[in-house]
Every structure is written in C-alpha cells, then in structure tokens.
Amino acid sequence: MLRIEKLNFSYGDLKVLWDVDLEVKEGEIVTVVGANGAGKSTTLKNISRLVKPDSGALTFDGQDLSRLPSHRVVELGVVQVPEGRRIFPEMTVMENLRMGSYVKGTRKDRERNVEWVFDLFPRLQERQKQLGGTMSGGEQQMLAIARGLMANPKLLLLDEPSLGLSPLLVKNIFDIITGINRQGVTILLVEQNVYQSLRIAHRAYVMETGRVVLTGGGQELLDNEHVKKAFLGM
C-alpha cells in the first residue's frame, strides 16, 4: 500500500534521513519506534508532503507521492494525525471535525463519520460546542484522531498519539487504535512508547539517528535483545 524506498531528507545542511526503506501493507498496524530525533516524525512529514524529500521513492497504491502537494496526498486517503495534536484552538469540536472532512468526496459522508467518531469517543459528543483550545490534552488527542478519521483515511498516520497522556489514557488510546484498525483502517504509528506500540503492531521498524536499524514483527522485536536493552530498560 505505502512503499518508501531509499528516502533521504535534510533540513538545510543537516541530514536527518538516510536511505529509509519502509513498507505498509493493507490492513496492517505498522509501528516505527525510536528515540527522540531518530527521524520518525520527519518520515511522516515526508509522506504527508509537508516537506520535500531530497531523493528516494514515496508511493501509495502506485501513485508517486513525492510529486504531489500535501492536499492531494490527503485526497488519496493518506491522513496524518500530527504530533502535539494541532487542534484548531479557536474552533469548536464540531468545526474541527468538519475541517477533517474538508476534502471533496468526504463531505458527503460527514454525518455518518460524525456518528462514527462520536461512537468511538462519546466524550466529544458531550463537548461538541466547546472550543478546541480549551480542552484537556487527552480530549484534544481524541479530537485529533477523530478529526483524522473524518477524512475517510485508507492509511492513518499517527504521530506520537500517547505523548503527554496519563497512563490510563495511554492504554485507552492504544485500544482505540487497535479498534480503528479492526474496522479496516491501515495504520502507521510513530511512537516513543515502545512497549505499548510494539504490543499492538503487526510489524515494526526501529529507527536510530535517521536510519532504519531493525525490522520485524511486533512481538519479535519485543523479544529482541537490542530493543530490550535500548528501549525497554531490560
């Protein structure tokens, strides 16, 4: 579904991605784990075309993403829920959701999708008239995911969805991600919470300083000595 080959990217003179290869197949949850600054978020930014890759191939269902502007990538069904949630602070919950289905072709499903996300996150239904900026971190994260789902994603890119949440909410979010995946949405998850994300992943990649250093099944990597030592403190 998504195929990244030899992706290279630099911020000015600073090279941050080195020959990254990554693949996501339909129906999977794929996780990219790694420390801060390993290049995980930058990889997602390249996929969403918020930045322009230096070189390498980025294809989604055979379409070359590297030649498309960011809004066209969303139209193809590659939708990112960004790190830090990035809710529109001065718009209500409902308006934020409406923006999620801004892309033509998703507007007709707006009502159905609103029902779907309210079903997933009943909290949002109670808060639908509240301004996004006044909500708690956990509520904003739910809204960010819900807003992403409004765009009928085929592939949902999640950037650090558990960051800054209480342990209880973290577990909740990972359960919800698994649930969304079971409903047919393919997921590429970027996380610093290595244990939780490997636990739900079908396959995973480990990134260190801009390179993919390990890849394998989620459980397989959980048992890997290097992963245990570097990320799980065992």
């Binding site: 918020l50 990538v73 139209e75 960004p82 990035r86 718009m91 801004y102």
Partner: peptide
Amino acid sequence: QAIRATAQDREAAQLMGI
C-alpha cells in the same frame, strides 16, 4: 472555515487536505 483553520494552524490545515 478553511481560511480560519489556515490562520490558526497552517501545517495542521495542510494535513486536513486544505
């Protein structure tokens, strides 16, 4: 609304397909 969204967070607006 898309204009307001762009004003509030340009990058997030891009991710909405705006």
